[in-house]
């Protein structure tokens, strides 16, 4: 009896081993590609889209490694991740330069450089009011950063911890924008009138803006785009002097320059997967396209992967330019099933 049981057990185990082995057998083994999934909407959407195209079209397995900018860039240098999608060059200039000089990473291409709609932002109802929600215009004559020193503005954006001054919310600590914003506040002569508060994280900044927006309260702070919240809420960017390289280098007393969104790779990647590297070199998405994708993500309350599938289905004319025709066909066939 015992022997029969034992034989049965051995039989079951061997069958299950054989069966599980079947699933893993691949005709040709391609190396795993690890993509750094940076933690904001537009980067995550592009990562998911790249994952689908690479897996379905090129046949490489792909792993997305979630993380934040600087640690991920470090991972790219050591080869823990292969590709880094949507870095903001001017925001990480020093770290990127160091890595390039050391020869650890290579620049694959630029997604675009027409965005960077960032600066000092208020909800539009602060200036124009919102008849639908019954909100009166609070400071109708606010148009540029130089209007902020008016007493009624200071009073409106008063710092609850120090009511004699106004409050400007700054970006997360450690970002280049945090330092630039601080300097701009001084250059524009606002430092006597306003305290600048560090919001700790982009989540904190967004939550504060969303909370104030829902309640129809005044809000003044730094914000950048493309970002889902800029697509979702009606916001107004306060005017600043136009970008001028000389002024910028001296005291940042002007609007931000446009920034280059780049895709970089570990130095060995072009040898490891030359066809995929070529795709990333052709990868171009302009800001309106990215904003559209982000707004769609918000509208369907979906995940980046949902947006990626939607984009692959609806915007064939854009992404098929990145890949050879046979790859495009494979991807199209695969997404038709999704």
């Amino acid at each position: 009896m015992r022997k029969v049981l034992l034989a049965l057990l051995v039989g079951i185990i061997s069958i299950s081993i054989v069966l599980s082995g079947c699933g893993e057998a691949e005709p040709e083994e391609k190396p795993l590609i690890k993509i750094a999934e940076l933690n904001w909407g537009s980067a995550r959407f592009q990562c998911e889209m790249a994952k689908i195209i690479i897996e379905e079209g090129y046949g490489y397995p792909v792993e997305l490694v979630p993380g934040i900018t600087i640690p991920m860039l470090q991972g790219l240098r050591t080869g823990d991740v292969d590709v880094y999608v949507e870095g903001w060059l001017q925001n990480q200039q020093e770290a990127v330069d160091t890595a390039m000089e050391a020869g650890d990473i290579v620049m694959l291409g630029f997604i675009n450089n027409d965005n960077w709609q960032c600066g000092f932002v208020v909800p539009t109802y602060v200036i124009e009011g919102d008849t639908e929600r019954g909100i009166e215009p609070m400071v109708p004559n606010l148009t540029s950063v130089f209007d902020l020193d008016q007493p009624e503005c200071k009073e409106l954006f008063a710092n609850p911890e120090n009511p004699s001054k106004g409050l400007i919310l700054n970006g997360p600590p450690g970002w280049e924008c945090e330092i630039v914003t601080l300097e701009q506040v001084t250059t524009y002569g606002l430092d006597d009138h306003y305290d600048v508060m560090n919001t700790g994280s982009s989540e904190g900044l967004f939550a504060s803006l969303q909370g104030a927006y829902d309640k129809g309260e005044p809000w003044l702070g730094y914000l950048w785009g493309p970002t889902w919240i800029a697509g979702a809420l009606d916001l107004t960017l306060l005017e600043e002097p136009a970008y001028d390289e000389e002024v910028w280098n001296e005291d940042h007393g002007c609007a931000w320059p446009s920034v280059d969104l780049f895709i970089a790779a570990h130095k060995d990647f072009p040898d490891k997967a030359p066809d995929v590297a070529e795709m990333f070199e052709k990868w171009k998405l302009d800001t309106p396209t990215l904003n559209e994708a982000l707004a769609y993500m918000l509208a369907i309350e979906g995940e980046p992967v949902d947006v990626a599938i939607w984009f692959l289905k609806e915007r064939e004319e854009i992404w098929t330019q990145f890949v050879p025709a046979d790859v495009a066909e494979k991807v199209k066939a695969a997404i038709a099933e999704m």
Binding site: Q74, P172, G174, N198, G200, G204
Partner: peptide, 20 residues
């Protein structure tokens, strides 16, 4: 707590690690 804008030592830690 510094991730939601509480200043102090926590923010300095955060600033440090964000910049490596």
């Amino acid at each position: 707590a510094s991730m939601i804008g509480a200043s102090g030592l926590g923010l300095e830690v955060l600033r440090g690690i964000q910049r490596l």
